[in-house]
């Protein structure tokens, strides 16, 4: 009996190991220094020589960390409920970057982003900048009708798997603009301005595509959101093609950040990026400045000094006048007349 069970276990382990191997084969194991490991083409997988010197720095398999646990533990608050992704699939994205095209690179990062997204209420959609076979042109739909309710089609529950497919498969994608970044942004601005919930715009593009026109477009969009809803649009950029952030959207007084794809390629960093993007610090219900997850006294009265554990710093007994009267006549005190 026992032997049978163990044999069974062994078998299942082998199966699992086999699947692991196949995944390994699929993703490949190149010895280059790049942080993101992406197969050079979709069907061919190569096995790179095992190199310990670079092994430490490379996590070839992307296994997303769970953000749900952290959200639960630290009681993180969701700050963004709408997400619009603009995936740049223009010609300039076809350039080679580190052996593969920027397009594949961007797609992989977007995939990792989607796989890391925690389970939460999120709405939005993914758009691409240009399509080879026209399907849905956002502009066409938008220009046809001024009824704002028409936008509701573009705001759907954000399912990462579907969205990833949508970015990947141009036949299914929603296309915004005429291929340039700024035209896409301009077209999306109606849609984004239509929502009045905190929204985030995620651009996945090549740094050099962010030109003066794109900057203006973003500035216009921000202004519009500000004027219409007195809200702020957070613009996040994942840049493909350089280790360092080259985005010019970030200003000290705006919301959103830009990162290079390589910087968030690892689970830890991706997790952090997503956390920053969608969540706002741990909750503090009693507003005593101590986060709920470490607040041992979760209902401190307003205005009291607290300890690091969230409980009152000074006993109530210390505060009452009467108690002090007993040992010594304390009404002698508080005589300062400044």
């Amino acid at each position: 009996m026992l032997g049978l069970v163990s044999a069974k276990n062994m078998f299942s382990r082998m199966v699992r190991a086999g699947s692991l191997l196949s995944v390994l084969l699929m993703f490949g194991c190149s010895s280059s220094e790049m942080l993101v490991k992406i197969p050079s083409n979709s069907d061919g997988a190569t096995i790179a020589p095992y190199d310990t010197s670079t092994f430490k720095n490379n996590i070839d398999l992307f296994s997303p960390l769970s953000l749900e646990r952290k959200i639960d533990q630290l009681k993180l608050l969701q700050r963004t409920e709408k997400l619009f992704v603009l995936f740049d699939n223009s010609d300039s994205m076809q350039d080679n970057y580190r052996g593969i095209s920027r397009y594949d690179y961007g797609l992989e990062i977007l995939d990792r982003f989607h796989r890391t997204l925690p389970n939460m209420t999120l709405q939005g959609n993914v758009f691409i900048t240009s399509a080879y076979i026209n399907t849905f042109f956002l502009s066409r739909i938008l220009s046809g009708d001024n009824n704002q309710d028409e936008f509701s089609w573009a705001i759907e529950p954000y399912d990462p798997d579907i969205m990833q497919e949508r970015a990947k498969d141009t036949t299914q994608s929603f296309v915004a603009g005429d291929g340039s970044l700024h035209s896409a942004i301009y077209e999306m601005s109606d849609l984004i301005a239509y929502t009045n919930e905190p929204a985030a715009l995620l651009l996945v593009t090549h740094w050099e595509r962010i030109d003066k026109k794109a900057l203006t477009a973003i500035a216009h969009l921000r202004q519009r959101i500000k004027m219409q809803h007195d809200k702020e649009l957070c613009v996040y950029t994942i840049g493909v093609g350089n280790n360092y952030s080259r985005a010019r959207f970030d200003q000290s007084d705006t919301c959103g950040t830009s990162v290079a794809a390589d910087k968030i390629a690892q689970p830890r960093d991706m997790l952090h990026f997503i956390e920053r993007m969608f969540f706002f610090g741990p909750a503090d219900t009693d507003n005593d400045g101590i986060y709920d997850y470490r607040d041992k006294c979760p209902d401190t009265e307003q205005g009291r000094l607290v300890r690091f554990d969230g409980c009152k710093r000074f006993d109530s007994a210390d505060l009452s006048n009467d108690v002090l009267k007993k040992p010594l006549d304390k009404s002698r005190f508080i005589v300062s007349n400044w």
Binding site: P198, D253, T257, L271, H272
Partner: peptide
């Protein structure tokens, strides 16, 4: 300095809006 994943620290640059009193900002 944000400690991510236990031991690794990252530096976040946050834009603090001093005159803003909206929640989650």
């Amino acid at each position: 300095h944000e400690i991510v994943d236990g031991e690794f620290s990252k530096t976040d640059n946050l834009n603090v809006k001093l005159q803003d009193n909206r929640a989650h900002e």
